[in-house]
């Protein structure tokens, strides 16, 4: 917490800090009322940290993840990613950052139903402008990393829930992003499969990947090194877990 308080607007964060948010707010103008989903969130996440974000429903977890994932822009406050201030970037620059710096895993997998696993994993590389050959190599490698080397030509509906989520993880990893973001990655999976997916996350983290995930479940959060709890759009607690 002390780092964040020392940080002032206009400073450049330390090199090892990957995510730094400063008094981030996000409001939704619903006409009749103003929904304040985030009300000044300041967090700092270092390279190779494994962070779980918890909190009751509606506390702003997804809103925060979307901001960190550059899918959304804050109403006010600052967001620095990898030393670059991204909170006031334009659309196309955000798209480039999503493509290069961020791997996002969704609760509902979000795979293209008509495309096979390999093509789904290749998608980010298409937008990175990579050639078909190197795309394929990278996608095959990513699928092998999540243990799906033998399911590459399967369509999503030919895969189990856990396998689909692995495809989604492979897709998130394929661009070698600075951070892996996951919003309730096990929310649609049974407990056995959830444990498997947590195994994958743990392995990625051991290989040096920075991971931030949202979860409702205590035993899922137990896989992380640090737990940030949100309540009513602000950080309630931020604790390192005993390893």
């Amino acid at each position: 917490m002390s780092n964040v308080q020392l940080f002032r607007t206009g400073d450049t964060p330390l090199p090892d800090v990957i995510i730094l948010t400063h008094k981030l707010t996000r409001e939704y103008d619903m006409g009749s009322e103003l929904v304040r989903a985030l009300r000044g969130v300041s967090v700092q996440i270092q390279r190779n940290e494994y962070v779980a974000v918890m909190g009751p429903s509606g506390s702003g977890k997804s809103t925060l993840m979307n901001l960190i994932g550059c899918l959304d822009t804050p109403t006010s406050g600052e967001y620095w990613l990898n030393g670059q201030k991204v909170s006031d970037l334009a659309d196309d620059e955000l798209a480039r950052i999503r493509n290069k710096e961020i791997g996002f895993v969704f609760q509902t997998f979000n795979l293209l139903p008509r495309a096979d696993a390999l093509h789904n994993v290749e998608l980010p590389l298409i937008y990175a402008g990579m050639s078909a050959k190197s795309r394929r190599e990278r996608a095959v490698h990513a699928l092998e990393r999540v243990g799906l080397g033998n399911r590459m030509d399967h369509k999503p509906n030919e895969l189990s829930g856990g396998q689909r989520q692995r495809v989604a993880i492979a897709r998130a990893l394929v661009n070698e992003p600075s951070i892996l973001l996951a919003d309730e990655p096990t929310g649609n999976l049974d407990s056995t499969t959830s444990t498997e997916i947590m195994g994958v996350f743990g392995e990625l983290h051991r290989q040096g990947q920075t991971v931030v995930m949202v979860t409702h479940e205590q035993d899922i959060a137990a896989h992380a090194e640090r737990v940030i709890t949100l309540r009513d759009g602000v950080v309630a607690t931020d604790q390192a877990r005993a390893a």
């Binding site: 659309d91 798209a95 998608l123 980010p124 937008y127 661009n175």
Partner: peptide
Amino acid sequence: TREIGLRKSLGARRTD
């Protein structure tokens, strides 16, 4: 729409 949202989240720009 979902497909478009997904493509954008994976880095597709408007022009893409």
